[in-house]
């Protein structure tokens, strides 16, 4: 161990222990990749479904298109257990405080997908009632336009998001892990 920082460290080999197995060295050089690989296949989506895109969400998450293949199959209906918020449909100004509250209740790390053109930019609803894109209220990681988006577009978005997650550095990975 180096330095006084003892937070969130999981020692794999205690200091002064016998030399590491060379196989394990290979593992540790790729640790970001391994953790990223594991994380990208364990997305727990929270479907914030407000409008007709919900039909498309059902289609993309059920048998034929099957987001289970990407590890994003199990919707959690509480924001506290989820890490991907899929905002599916039109968000009105009246709903915006609810959306923000739900987002704040999610634990880090968290990602947001704007599913459909209404969530992305307000779509063709440019009037007194509709929020012109959820990114005015909460940060958005990936935008899927379309009215509604094709299932292939949603899958592509999930794959791009996975790509990003896989290349992220996780905070638990310190020098000694």
């Amino acid at each position: 161990m180096n330095g006084p920082d003892k937070r969130a460290t999981i020692p794999i080999a205690a200091a002064g222990s016998p030399p590491k197995n060379p196989v394990f060295d290979v593992f540790t050089t790729k640790k970001d990749e391994v953790v990223g690989w594991a994380r990208k296949f364990s997305l727990f989506p929270y479907p914030f479904v407000t409008a007709c895109c919900g039909m498309e969400f059902m289609s993309v998450s059920s048998t034929i298109y099957d987001t289970d293949r990407f590890g994003a199959a199990l919707p959690r209906f509480t924001p506290r257990q989820s890490d991907l918020m899929m905002v599916v449909g039109t968000i009105t100004h009246k709903q915006a405080p609810v959306l923000q509250r739900i987002y704040e209740q999610m634990c880090e790390p968290k990602w947001v997908m704007a599913f459909g053109v209404c969530a992305t930019s307000g779509g063709f609803y440019n009037n007194y009632a509709v929020l012109q894109g959820i990114d005015k209220v909460i940060p958005v990681d990936i935008y899927v336009p379309g009215c509604p988006p094709r299932p292939e577009m949603v899958i592509d978005a999930i794959m791009q998001l996975q790509e990003r997650i896989a290349n992220e550095h996780h905070v638990i990975l310190k020098g000694d892990f």
């Binding site: 100004h93 009246k94 915006a96 405080p97 923000q100 990602w111 947001v112 440019n126 009037n127 007194y128 929020l131 012109q132 990114d135 005015k136 209220v137 909460i138 940060p139 958005v140 990681d141 990936i142 935008y143 990003r164």
Partner: peptide, 23 residues
Amino acid sequence: KHHEQPLVPYRDTADRGTQGGPR
């Protein structure tokens, strides 16, 4: 028709997409 009366203060637009979105 373009008059909005938001209930939530908007985020700083310069901050939009900082998490890697296309904007």
